[in-house]
Amino acid sequence: MKITINGNIRNFKYESMTADELVLELKLKGKRFAIEKNGQIMPKSLFKEFTINDGDNLEIVGAVGGG
């Protein structure tokens, strides 16, 4: 499947995956971040249940220096 992450298209060998699996795949485990799928926030508590499918648009954000 092809999904868009932070504006870049990425290919994955799976047909769909859970948010938990995506986090492992992107090596984000243990980091502080938040994910939005197609404009909706995916709560961390539901990462095991949320599925990501072909064509989904994800924004993954973190905290950076700012004023």
Partner: peptide, 17 residues
């Protein structure tokens, strides 16, 4: 702090704020 897109997959060991 500001909220910005996370760097994906570039450097796993990269430290954050």
């Amino acid at each position: 702090v500001a909220i910005r897109r996370t760097n994906i997959g570039q450097n796993e060991k990269e430290q954050s704020l």
